[in-house]
Write a protein that binds this DNA or RNA. Sequence first.
DNA 1: ATCTATTTTCTCGACTGTCGAGAAAAAAGC
DNA 2: GCTTTTTTCTCGACAGTCGAGAAAATAGAT
Lengths: 403, 403
Amino acid sequence: MLTKSSTELVRQQNSSLVLAALRRKGSLSHTEIAAQTGLASATISVITAELERAGIIAKIEQHVQGGRGRPRVLFAPRRTSGYVIVVRISSDTVQYSLVDYGGVLLDRFEEARSHDSSGTAAFGRLFTAALERLLNRSHIAKDEVLAISISSKWLVAADGARLVWSPVFGDEQLDFEKLLRPEWRARVMLNNESLLVAQALAVRAEEKEGGFRSLAVVSLGHSIGLGLARKGRSGELDVSAPNFGHMLHATSAGLCRCGSYGCIEAAAGFYGILRTAFQVPSDTIPAKFVPLSEMDKIAASARQGHRMAGYAFRQAGVALGNGISRVISLYEPMPIFVTGQGTRYFDLLHKGLTEGLAQSLQVRLEGLPEITVLADEQRLVFDGHLDRALSAIDADIAAAGHP
Amino acid sequence: MLTKSSTELVRQQNSSLVLAALRRKGSLSHTEIAAQTGLASATISVITAELERAGIIAKIEQHVQGGRGRPRVLFAPRRTSGYVIVVRISSDTVQYSLVDYGGVLLDRFEEARSHDSSGTAAFGRLFTAALERLLNRSHIAKDEVLAISISSKWLVAADGARLVWSPVFGDEQLDFEKLLRPEWRARVMLNNESLLVAQALAVRAEEKEGGFRSLAVVSLGHSIGLGLARKGRSGELDVSAPNFGHMLHATSAGLCRCGSYGCIEAAAGFYGILRTAFQVPSDTIPAKFVPLSEMDKIAASARQGHRMAGYAFRQAGVALGNGISRVISLYEPMPIFVTGQGTRYFDLLHKGLTEGLAQSLQVRLEGLPEITVLADEQRLVFDGHLDRALSAIDADIAAAGHP
DNA sequence: ATCTATTTTCTCGACTGTCGAGAAAAAAGC
DNA sequence: GCTTTTTTCTCGACAGTCGAGAAAATAGAT
């Protein structure tokens, strides 16, 4: 249902717009803001004055330019007006980063994870301690942190900040919101890494040309992830991370780590490929962790023509292709981007992938989707984090208004 | 990307809101509108005055009420301020209905379709002629028709008003927009019937309690349709009709009418069930049309314990269950509603359906989705038509403003 | 028949917001 | 020091919403 609108909302929306423009371009002058946003010059004056008074943006000194008339003065987000903590959780390490409101990385460290003493409670203690350490090192107070953006490769609840399932914690849920709530005022966000990559790519695609409609990111590795970014009817970006890895592929794919049979992951995840390559019975409970070197060996023998190894990769490709064809059926045709450690085996997966894709009507009607392998995943994930966290903060600021 | 907002947009939004409230409740007084919309009384005065002056709404005479104070005067959409034509295309007949702006059915007739002389051009001529006839019978001018809402059970392009694939026209596309454009000023809308049912159900669910998030409608029949309704983050309803029937189920399902192998429809559509029941080779090009009586016979023998007939229905159920589990994986858990002629065999499908559903992690985590069989599909489709067409008209009116 | 209590609708002034045009500011060129 | 050019700021007009209270219209009481 629609909700009522008012002049305050108008201001809120337009403030957001100005902040978003500033964010995208780094710094802009009065006239440039007007051009970017389409707002009247007078409106820009009012909004920038308000944001400057609130200490959210500031004029930049250096005006190096050789124009004729009155020099432009640039506005930019005031870097010290807030901070974001970015946390990337992977199976063997946790990376903590501190970023200021201008999007500049201030500090970063990693902590190895001890696989034995895990359990959500213990992890929670280590986690909060690490956050404290991050702040201490840069002399920043807890309530200057406006957002904590966390990511993992595993299943995340769409509503809150709950980690629903992971190979490390199993079915035990981990609620970061609850973990941090009384002490931290920061907004807590938890997202799947593929979602963040999709977000970053979508933002880039939007910059480039207006033709962007939707895209999908498939992450290949120990587990299989999917990030989906689509432009809604009203023009806003809608990103999500559906449960692709554990979507049903075919019961023949065998037992999955999650306990079900026939997940895509059970065929296309590292342990699934290993199981097929070594002809382990498909109802064997799969290995907790497959070292990359092991996978490299299988890939090498596949490239040398070893039948079963080659088949394992091909069958993984078919599982992915079928899965993607289903995504396309249930959403719409869209370009596919592939990331993750598994991309190094893409040559081996490729044939099965196109084969698996070609089986559906949608693909037959619209042709094969464009498939691109991504190199700089690290960077994209981080960009996605910042994009989401900072624009969430911007929205909060615009909503707070003039108190 | 966000777009700029302005005071005009505020008015537009709030006008829409008033119209929508009036539409839902039929007629409302000044105070009731204020309560429904949350707008201030003064604002209601301005907006209703404007809409009344434009002839979109009118005061209703009869004020039967036994209150004390000043009697309420009711506003209602003025029935003669516009008309909608609703067209339902099915494989053997086309139904044309004329409805006024108040949502009241004025006239309706059906035309049988001759299966031999079909072809999009011939159909187009019959179609436009029928529209003319509908108007003549009620003495309504062409430019009083503000929307033409068309539906079929087949595949529809998400962007325009193009019928992309149907068992009758095959790959030949039928573009209604192009067919009607120069002569008719009406907005042309083409939707899948399952989408319309989903829309109608979603609107009802929203009325009832605020707890509505999403739902899916599966239509069983000669072909298999899916309608999806979800509440977006900003609270607006997002309905779609993904290509569920031709989503890949499993290659073992055999050749589909669409030319691919392994579509859900090839297993769960009427001809798929028939093929399995009679053990026809699964790469046989399936029957163009299976009479309902034939299906009834198979069902009867299945209920009497005939093995192959029972298996055919069960395997159809599994295909549906697997498909729905994939929808749930790629979207979110949601209640399922089943419509279409095939619901009369639901007892036979049910076991396979739950079996097919239970195979996925998502279902294991969240439990089986609630499944409801719908009785009054006719009514729901029509309601969906009206809901979409009338609210689209309302939006147009609000956008037009005071010219 | 008139008055009063009650309820609904309408109106007025205050406030917030956007916009266009032109004034003011600030630098470069002459 | 004056002019030109470009940018930023300011002012008045206009559109929209809101709260409060005035006006309208009825039922019941006197």
